[in-house]
């Protein structure tokens, strides 16, 4: 057996991440398992809030809270599904057999989750502006995009970690959200505080720097933590 195997160094991490991400997105495009369900849940939740709050229009604090809580709950759907196909169809085994860094899986999954979140927001934010938001969203958009982008990074890191933690438990649909939601409270808190003035009735207020900093710190800390402990979740 002198067939030329992979070189000692193996393929570069970037190419592995890219290949895994492409596989992830292709699976999602073919099965449409996560994004449509997330978007539907988000729109349904807006309707629920409309009846629950008995309000036709919301602004300020209330608007920020409705938007962020909805996004967070919708993201739980993707977090719950993130590793299920890999577990059931042998994706884990295939990956573990390959001579590549295990962090590549974390990066690829987090990137995929990030893409799902952006896709969700592309549907949910316009739907929110249309259905519930009182003031026009135009002026708030740049600030909102910035805070959503930072929050997505944090949700992707923590979500991937929790998804990997929960997927091998017996009650995975229970454990995932139970662990993820308290961990994501700082994201909800900063996101809501950031967007409350943006969505206020009297035109968008300024973006609060300290909340952007909090989000960035959260992303950094949990990105590093996820990177440090993810390997331990894969040894089977």
């Amino acid at each position: 057996m002198s067939a030329p195997g992979p070189t000692a160094a193996g393929p570069s991490t970037a190419s592995v991440v890219f290949a895994l991400l492409r596989k992830e997105l292709r699976v999602e495009l073919r099965t449409l398992e996560s994004v449509p369900a997330m978007s539907l849940l988000a729109v349904t939740t807006f309707v629920l809030f409309h009846f629950g709050l008995n309000r036709g229009r919301v602004d300020g604090d209330l608007a920020a809270g409705v938007l962020w809580v909805t996004l967070l709950f919708a993201s739980m759907l993707a977090i719950n599904r993130l590793f299920v196909a890999d577990l059931e169809q042998g994706g884990f085994d295939g990956f573990l057999l390959a001579p590549v860094s295990r962090s590549a899986l974390l990066l690829a999954k987090a990137a995929a989750l990030g893409v799902y979140l952006v896709a969700l927001e592309l549907v949910a934010v316009p739907a929110f502006a249309l259905l519930l938001l009182g003031p026009s969203i135009g002026g708030a958009l740049p600030g909102l995009v910035a805070s959503l982008a930072l929050a997505d990074l944090g949700i992707a890191a923590v979500g991937t970690l929790v998804a990997a933690l929960a997927v091998r438990t017996r009650a995975r649909d229970l454990i995932g959200p139970l662990v993820a939601l308290p961990l994501l409270i700082p994201v909800l808190l900063s996101g809501a505080r950031l967007s409350a003035p943006l969505l206020a009735g009297g035109g968008p207020g300024p973006l609060a720097g300290r909340w952007l900093a909090t989000l960035a710190l959260y992303d950094l800390v949990f990105g590093l933590i996820a990177y440090a402990v993810f390997d331990f979740l894969l040894e089977d």
Binding site: A166, R168, T169, R170, L174, I175, L178
Partner: peptide, 11 residues
Amino acid sequence: ATYQPLRFAIE
């Protein structure tokens, strides 16, 4: 509070 349910759910 989810620590124990998590342990409990892994055989």
